[in-house]
Write a protein that binds this DNA or RNA. Structure first.
Lengths: 70, 70
DNA sequence: GTGTGACTTGGAGTCCGTG
DNA sequence: CCACGGACTCCAAGTCACA
């Protein structure tokens, strides 16, 4: 499992735990909906700034989004 | 403290704990020497892939490099 | 509500050097 | 051993239309 897949998995998991759609998260994090979709499909290696914005929108620490599903 | 500063602080701390120079870490992580220098000076928002490679080279989890100095 | 292809552009990341 | 600069390449960032 590479780092993109870890981010994708964590992002999807936390997002669903919060019960928010990609669209709602996109609005909260001020990131385009299709870009979030791309990240959940491991299309890009996001920058730490994007990770940070997503983490804030989800109410968690940026580190939690990169924590390996050990 | 923004995410770049958090990464910079953690990177510098772990690197010095391991007693490795920027140059040695650059070699271990296969990242350019000047780029690591730039990251420690908060010049760029690294991608998660770079964070991952640095973490592996330091023998830690990628999440540890983004953990906020709470 | 989400996946996807196409597109542009600013910045990530490299390589050369200097003090 | 590190900060810092210029010049370069290439991908992440951001947006759109459509399925």
């Amino acid at each position: 499992m590479n780092i993109r897949e870890i981010l994708a998995a964590n992002l999807k998991r936390y997002r669903r735990e919060r019960g928010v759609s990609q669209e709602e998260l996109a609005h909260l994090a001020e990131i385009d909906r299709t870009y979030i979709s791309s990240l959940e499909r491991c299309q890009y290696a996001a920058s730490i700034e994007v990770v940070d914005r997503l983490a804030r929108a989800l109410g968690i620490d940026a580190a939690d989004l990169l924590r390996g599903t050990v």
